[in-house]
Design a protein around this nucleic acid. Structure first.
Length: 377
DNA sequence: TAACACGTATTC
DNA sequence: GAATACGTGTTA
């Protein structure tokens, strides 16, 4: 029932072409914007016109969500464009590979083309400050995009890439998002397609690739988290070089078990353009507390003095809250942004909610392996 | 026990 | 230096 209410804006249009529609009842197929191979394909993103209504709807949902244990995937699938938080462009939030994780399972704008949503909307919705760089593996520069690996993604990119729309993504990322009181600004940005920076989109195109949302969020991931958001539960890929699988760049490989050389606190790896596995450097392994690139000293607060064991943990980047991109703007953390120093409650990493040191391996997979393999074949 | 407040690490 | 966010002590 929640979702039905959240997908009602089924005909919001993109204003890439300069059309600013005043009605939300227009159908996609009849709008002239849809005729061409416009960047955003058949799924337009336009400002949510009825912003007030959207906000009310969201707040009511937020209340509901607060009182119920709603599957975070469902929550994530909405993105809450009506959030009071300005959604700035930022680099992907995915750990290690900085993958721009597709978030939406269902477009808040009712777009049924989830592929387009992945490649455009989600990329565009990335926001906030730039995530920390946890590895030294450089991102492929935009100029490397027309690579065979990139073209491999083409079948998933109906409508092509909305190129040349942005360019200011980095500036936005730098300014991060001021939690509340910027709803209007968000609207403004949305309306001007500033979400879609060429920079961000480019990176997403390269890194996200086949990391379809389904692989990332639509598995039977329970609220218990445990990093099960990979969507490939039950597949032991730990001994599979990504190259052997012929996986395209951006594919998330979930490594089960701990008998590999990869940090077993994270079972996600991502293929690069060269089909190498990017070890998830984001997590601090319990047995090897040294993240790949972190040079920070041990955490000093708390006076534990045990060095690396007290290092600040990072968001896992794969759990539902982490994949949420927009602050709700209504929770206490958002409201007390300045004094609370806390991330939005809805974005608080599941892993960080757990007590430090209680990190454990995934529970036995709940998804049959055959089900898991469907993501790959 | 959850919410809050604050110190502090991290990043830009 | 500002913004963000994690860790932890305090409070309701």
């Amino acid at each position: 029932m929640v979702m039905s209410g959240l997908t009602r804006s089924s005909s919001v249009h993109n204003d890439h072409s300069g059309h600013n529609l005043s009605s939300t009842t227009t159908t996609h197929g009849h709008h002239p914007d849809q005729s061409g191979a416009v960047a955003v394909g058949g799924c337009g993103l336009t400002p949510v016109l009825d912003y007030t209504a959207e906000m009310e709807r969201y707040q009511s949902f937020a209340n509901f969500y607060t009182k119920t244990n709603v599957n975070m995937n469902a929550v994530n699938s909405m993105n809450f464009p009506q959030s009071a938080k300005l959604a700035h462009i930022t680099a992907p939030m995915f750990p290690g590979g900085r993958l721009g994780v597709g978030v939406a399972g269902v477009s808040p704008w009712g777009c049924h083309d989830n592929i387009n949503m992945n490649m455009n909307v989600n990329a565009a919705m990335l926001w906030g400050r730039k995530p920390p760089v946890h590895q030294t593996t450089p991102l492929a520069p935009p100029t490397t995009h027309p690579s065979p690996s990139t073209t491999h993604m083409q079948p998933h990119r109906t409508g092509g890439v909305a190129g040349g729309q942005g360019g200011e993504g980095k500036q936005h990322a730098r300014h991060g998002g001021h939690a509340s009181s910027q709803g209007q600004e968000m609207h403004h940005h949305h309306g001007n397609n500033n979400f879609q920076s060429g920079y961000a989109a480019a990176n997403h195109m390269t890194k996200q690739g086949h990391a379809h949302q389904d692989m990332l969020s639509l598995s039977n991931r329970s609220s218990s988290g445990n990093g099960g958001g990979g969507g490939v539960n039950g597949v032991n890929m730990s001994n599979f070089p990504a190259g052997m699988l012929g996986l395209p760049p951006g594919v998330i490989v979930m490594a089960m078990g701990s008998h590999n050389n990869i940090s077993d606190s994270s079972h996600f790896q991502m293929t690069t353009n060269h089909n190498q596995l990017l070890s998830d450097c984001h997590h601090v392994n319990q047995t090897n507390p040294s993240p790949c690139s972190s040079t920070s000293p041990g955490m000093t607060s708390g006076g534990q003095g045990s060095g690396a064991s007290k290092r600040k943990r990072k968001r896992c980047g794969v759990c539902a809250p982490c994949r949420r991109l927009i602050n709700c703007g209504v929770c206490s953390a958002c409201r007390n942004r300045k004094t609370g120093h806390q991330i939005c409650k809805f974005r608080k990493c599941d892993e960080l909610k757990k007590k430090a040191g209680s990190i454990q391996l995934e529970s036995p997979p709940s998804v049959p392996s055959g089900e898991a393999f469907r993501w790959f074949f």
